[in-house]
C-alpha cells in the first residue's frame, strides 16, 4: 500500500470530506496560503478557495465561537488551533458553549464540528507550545476526544470525526506529522470509540496514546529480544473510550503499563487505571497498575531536559521490565 505522512493523511481526509460535503470548511490562523503552522492544510486554499479555507485573526475564542455557531445552523466546520496550548484562549466557547448546547437545549440542537490541534513536546518550543492538555477535554461531557497515532488512523478517524454530530477535539502530535505509514487512497473511516491492538503479546499490556503508541511499539520490539512479549493497545479515542478492548487485553496479560505524554497528575492514565482496576481485569492483575507519564513540570527548553520530561523508549522498556520481573 502507498505510504504517506501523518500530515498528508490528515490533509487527504480534509480534501476528501470537503469534496464530498459542501458544509465542511476549514477555519484557523494561517491555514490558507501559509498552509497552517505545520503545513497540514497546504494547498487546500488553492482547491477550495478562501471562502472554505478561512484565515482568521489571532482570535482563538473567536475561532471556537465561529465553529460552534456555524455548526449550530448546519455547517460542519473544521477549526484549527495552532498549538494545543492556545486552546486555553478558546476554553469558554469549547467548554461552556459547544459541549453543553445540546444538553442545555434539551437535545434539540447539534454542534457538529472538529477542532484540530497539535499537542506534544520535542520541538524545543518550551513551556507554552508543548503541552498535552487532552484530559481537560475528556473531563467535559458533550465533547469527544480523539488522538490518532498513525497516518492510517489519522485519516480514518478524521473522516469519522467530521461526520460525527458532536463537537470533537482532534489532538494531533507535532512529532508524528512527518511519520509515514500505509494509507489507502480511497476514503474510509475508523469509528470513534474503538481501540486497536497495535501489537499482540502475552506478558504485559501497554496502553499508550498518540506518540507514545509509536514509542511503545519500538520498546515492545526491543523487549521481545529479552523474551518479554508486550501487547500494545491504542485507545485512539479517549472519549468515548473502548473499555472492553483494554480490559480484555489486561485479562490476558495480567500486567498493565499506561503510557502518555501529558503530565501524570490528573492525566488520562488515572482514568485508565481506575477503569481497569474497577473491571473484571482486577482479578487477573499480577502486579499493580503502573503509569508512565510526563513529569509534573512545564516542558523545559533545554534539549536534554525536554527529552527527559516525557516518556522515551528506554523509559518504557525499563518500566515494562520492572513490571514483568518485579522491582529490580
Amino acid at each position: 500500500m502507498r505510504e504517506i505522512t501523518y500530515a498528508e493523511a490528515i490533509r487527504e481526509a480534509l480534501r476528501e470530506e470537503m469534496r464530498r460535503d459542501e458544509r465542511v470548511f476549514i477555519i484557523g490562523e494561517d491555514v490558507g496560503v501559509y498552509g497552517g503552522s505545520f503545513g497540514v492544510t497546504l494547498g487546500l486554499i488553492e482547491e477550495f478557495g478562501p471562502q472554505r479555507v478561512i484565515d482568521t485573526p489571532i482570535s482563538e475564542l473567536g475561532i471556537a465561537g465561529a465553529i460552534t455557531g456555524a455548526a449550530l445552523i448546519g455547517m460542519r466546520p473544521v477549526g484549527e488551533i495552532m498549538f494545543m496550548d492556545f486552546c486555553t484562549l478558546a476554553m469558554e466557547q469549547l467548554v461552556n458553549q459547544a459541549a453543553k448546547i445540546r444538553f442545555m437545549f434539551g437535545g434539540k440542537a447539534t454542534v457538529p464540528f472538529v477542532l484540530r490541534t497539535p499537542a506534544g513536546s520535542g520541538t524545543g518550543a518550551a513551556a507554552q507550545h508543548s503541552q498535552s492538555l487532552e484530559n481537560w477535554f475528556v473531563h467535559v461531557p458533550g465533547l469527544k476526544v480523539v488522538m490518532p497515532s498513525t497516518p492510517y488512523d489519522a485519516k480514518g478517524l478524521l473522516l469519522s470525526a467530521i461526520r460525527d454530530d458532536n463537537p470533537v477535539i482532534f489532538v494531533e502530535h507535532k512529532l508524528l506529522y512527518k511519520v509515514k505509514g500505509p494509507v489507502p487512497e480511497d476514503p474510509y473511516t475508523v469509528p470513534l470509540g474503538t481501540a486497536e491492538v497495535k501489537r499482540q503479546g502475552g506478558d504485559i499490556t501497554i496502553v499508550a496514546t498518540s506518540i507514545m503508541v509509536r514509542r511503545s511499539l519500538e520498546a515492545a520490539e526491543r523487549l521481545a529480544h529479552e523474551g518479554i512479549e508486550a501487547e500494545v493497545v491504542d485507545p485512539r479515542t479517549l472519549k468515548p473510550l473502548d473499555e472492553a478492548t483494554i480490559i480484555r487485553s489486561v485479562c490476558r496479560t495480567g500486567r498493565v503499563l499506561i503510557v502518555h505524554e501529558a503530565c501524570r497528575t490528573g492525566g488520562f492514565g488515572g482514568e485508565l487505571a481506575a477503569v481497569i482496576a474497577g473491571s473484571e481485569a482486577f482479578d487477573y492483575l499480577d502486579a499493580p497498575i503502573v503509569r508512565l507519564a510526563g513529569r509534573d513540570i512545564p516542558i523545559p527548553y533545554n534539549r536534554t531536559l525536554e527529552y527527559h520530561s516525557v516518556p522515551q523508549v528506554d523509559d518504557i522498556i525499563a518500566a515494562a521490565r520492572r513490571l514483568v520481573h518485579g522491582a529490580a
Binding site: T68, G69, A71, L72, I73, Q97
Partner: peptide, 14 residues
C-alpha cells in the same frame, strides 16, 4: 458574541 460570528459566517456561506 463569538457564537454570533459563527452563525453569521454560516448564514453567509449558505
Amino acid at each position: 458574541l463569538p457564537l454570533a460570528v459563527g452563525v453569521g459566517l454560516g448564514l453567509k456561506m449558505q
